[in-house]
Computed example of a mutant assay.
Amino acid sequence: MNRNPVYLALDLPRLDAAEALARKVSGHIGGIKLGLEFFCAHGHHGVHELHKVGLPIFLDLKLHDIPNTVAGAMQAIHVLQPSIVTIHAAGGRAMMEDAKAAAGENCKVVAVTVLTSLDGDDLSAIGVNANPYDQALRLADLAHSAGLDGIVCSGHEVGAVHKQWKDGYFVVPGLRPADGKVGDQKRTVTPREARDAGASVLVIGRPISRAEDPLAAAKAIEATL
């Protein structure tokens, strides 16, 4: 792909600050990811305002409910014209099928497999008797069979999933530059490593948004790709 695969995760509490940051780095990213924090604070209005930056919008809402409710939520965001929307693979096949059927024509629906903040101990504590790698691959197969466009997984799994799902669309969060702080992420790789392994979208937040010079940070990450 020629387009810059970096989507900036913009979960700033103030809408004006979020828009200003997006405009500042817009020439060195490929899109904007808006998550639950942003959506709960600013709703449809906030998304419309960020559309003015002129980049694709990724709504990272991680929808997870009964199939009818998730389908209704997908229909409710048609007006926002998102390029990508996330749902949880753990919601099951029927939920994923209904979410995809209800999505806008130009919207990619991708399923979250295992959150990058979780490790094997965390999965065991919630009753999942598999390590993150095996669980991610299992849910990727389910998402593929349900007709979704792709999945969200860590950089540790994307290579294996890409081998099994050649035309899939793979979103990789939890990325950190080689010299970056890991923070609350437990399964990180560098943006370049994820891209080389088959990632379609690289989600990067704090390494840019909390950098002393966000523009320089965005340029530096872009240069590694």
Rank of each mutant, 00 (worst) to 15 (best):
S154L: 06
V152I: 14
L137N: 03
A197L: 07
L123T: 08
A94Y: 06
P191K: 00
S117E: 07
D141W: 07
A140M: 04
I126W: 03
T86I: 14
A197D: 10
L175C: 06
K108E: 11
D141M: 12
R187A: 03
A89K: 10
L142E: 15
V158L: 03
G91M: 00
D184F: 10
A99R: 09
E97N: 01
H162V: 10
S117K: 07
N106T: 07
H162Q: 15
S154C: 09
K181V: 14
V171K: 01
V172T: 04
V158D: 07
D149I: 12
L175T: 00
D122R: 03
M96N: 09
G198L: 13
D196N: 12
H88W: 06
H162W: 09
V152Y: 02
P132A: 12
D179T: 05
P132V: 15
A94M: 13
Q185E: 02
V128L: 15
T116R: 00
I87H: 04
L137W: 12
D134E: 15
A143R: 01
R192W: 13
A99S: 14
A178N: 10
R93G: 06
T116D: 06
A140D: 10
I151H: 02
T86P: 02
Q135I: 07
D149T: 02
A111E: 06
N129A: 14
G174T: 09
G150N: 08
V85L: 07
D98F: 13
H156V: 03
V109T: 08
P177G: 00
G183L: 00
A136G: 02
A111R: 05
E157A: 07
E193N: 01
V85Q: 05
G150M: 08
D167F: 06
Y133A: 07
S154I: 11
S154A: 03
K166Q: 13
Y169W: 12
E157N: 05
K181N: 10
T113Q: 09
S200Q: 04
A194T: 11
V158G: 00
L118P: 05
V85W: 05
L118R: 02
A111H: 14
K100H: 15
D121A: 15
V114K: 05
D119K: 00
A146T: 09
V110Y: 10
P177E: 11
D141N: 04
D184V: 06
G159D: 00
S124K: 15
L202F: 12
K163R: 14
K181H: 15
D179G: 02
A102N: 03
T113V: 12
G168C: 08
N106F: 14
E193P: 00
L175V: 01
A90I: 04
G127A: 13
S145M: 11
A178W: 11
V110L: 15
S154R: 02
A146N: 04
G104Q: 06
A146Q: 03
N131L: 13
